[in-house]
Design a protein around this nucleic acid. Sequence first.
DNA 1: ACCCACATGTAATGGGTTACATGATTTA
DNA 2: TAAATCATGTAACCCATTACATGTGGGT
Lengths: 184, 184
Amino acid sequence: MYANLANSARQGIMKKPAARKTLTELEGAALAIIKRRGPCTAYVVKEAFRTSPSEFWSGSAGAVYPLMKRLETRKLISSKADKSDGRARREFSVTKAGDAAITDWLTDAERASSLGFDPLRTRLFFCDLLTDGALRKFVAEVQREMEAKSEPPAEDLDHTHALHEQWMKLRLKALKAFANSLDT
Amino acid sequence: MYANLANSARQGIMKKPAARKTLTELEGAALAIIKRRGPCTAYVVKEAFRTSPSEFWSGSAGAVYPLMKRLETRKLISSKADKSDGRARREFSVTKAGDAAITDWLTDAERASSLGFDPLRTRLFFCDLLTDGALRKFVAEVQREMEAKSEPPAEDLDHTHALHEQWMKLRLKALKAFANSLDT
DNA sequence: ACCCACATGTAATGGGTTACATGATTTA
DNA sequence: TAAATCATGTAACCCATTACATGTGGGT
C-alpha cells in the first residue's frame, strides 16, 4: 500500500546516507527484532515486518536480505550458517556493537519527537479542497474503516498489540473531534 | 532527518509503481498545494514542503522538480513559461484531470485509515529492550522536546497549523499515558 | 558590492518496491 | 501428493535524498 517513505518512511526515513552512522528506521527495527527474538534467520525478521500490526513496512525480501548484509558488514550483527538439516539456514545475532546501536537508535529523542507520517493528517491538512459533502462522506468512511481495523481487545494482548490499539484509538478520537468540529 | 519512507516513509509511500495509477503521497500533496495556491512555480511547491510543520518531507529540489515533470506528463497539471521579467519562471496549474486526481487521492479512505509511520510508536514498540532507567530518561527527554516544538497558540492560527498542534498534543498525551503506565 | 530570496535544474547515491526464481520441509 | 510455510536471494525499477551548479532580482 505504501512505498519509500516511506520509502517514506516510509518510509523509514533517514536523510544523510553520506554520514551513514545512524540507522534507518528499518535497520533499527530489524536490529531490535533480532535482539528481542534472539538468534534468528532473515526470514523471521522479514515475517516480523510483514505481519506487524502497522501496514507501513511490507516486509519484502528485497528490503530485508540486503539489509541484513549491510548490518553484518557494519558488524552490528554476526551470522552462522546452519546446515544441520537439508534446509540452508543462516542465523543472525546482535553483536556488542549492535547492542549499543540499538540503544542509540531507540533513545533518539529527536527522531522520536518528530511527527512522522500520517496519511490521515495529510488529508485533513488539505480538507478545504473538498466540498462539505465529500468531506463528511470521507470522514465517515475513514471512521468506519478504522473501527473495522481495530481488533476486539483480547485478554492476552501483549504490550506491542496494546500499543497498536492505543494508537488506533487515539487517531479515531482525533478524527471524531474533527468530525464534530464540522458541525459547529 | 528522514529518508525514503519515507521511505517511506517517508516515506511518501506507494507500493505499486507498476500500476502507476494512484498518486504517491508527495504527488498528491503537491497537486493539492498547487490547487490551493493557484497557478505557481515548482519553487513555491518545494518551499511549501520545506516549511511545512511536519518534518517528514525535506522539500528538496531533486524531489519536486522531477515530480512536476511527472505530473505534467500525466496531464494532471499544465505549465506556462513566463519570461516577462529576465527571471525564467514556469507556472503550473491543475488541469481538470488533476482536479479529479486530487479528489481521488484526498478521499482514499483505505490509505487515510492506515497508521502510517510514527517514530515514537516504533520506539515504544521496542521499549522492553531498554532498562527501566534508560526508558524513563528517554520518555522524559521526548516529552521535553515535544513540548518545546509545540508553538504557543497564536490567535491567527489557520486550520493547517491548528491541525498540526492538535496532532502534537495528541501524541504528547499518548506519551504521558505511557509514562504513567510505567509507574503502576 | 554583497547577500538573500527566487528560480531551475542535474548527478550520484541509496534504499526501498514489485516480481521473479529456486528449493526443502511440513502439514492437510 | 498437493499446498502452504520456511528459506534465500536477485533483477529491474522508482523515487527520494544530498550535493552541486547556475543565474536573476531586490534590499541594505
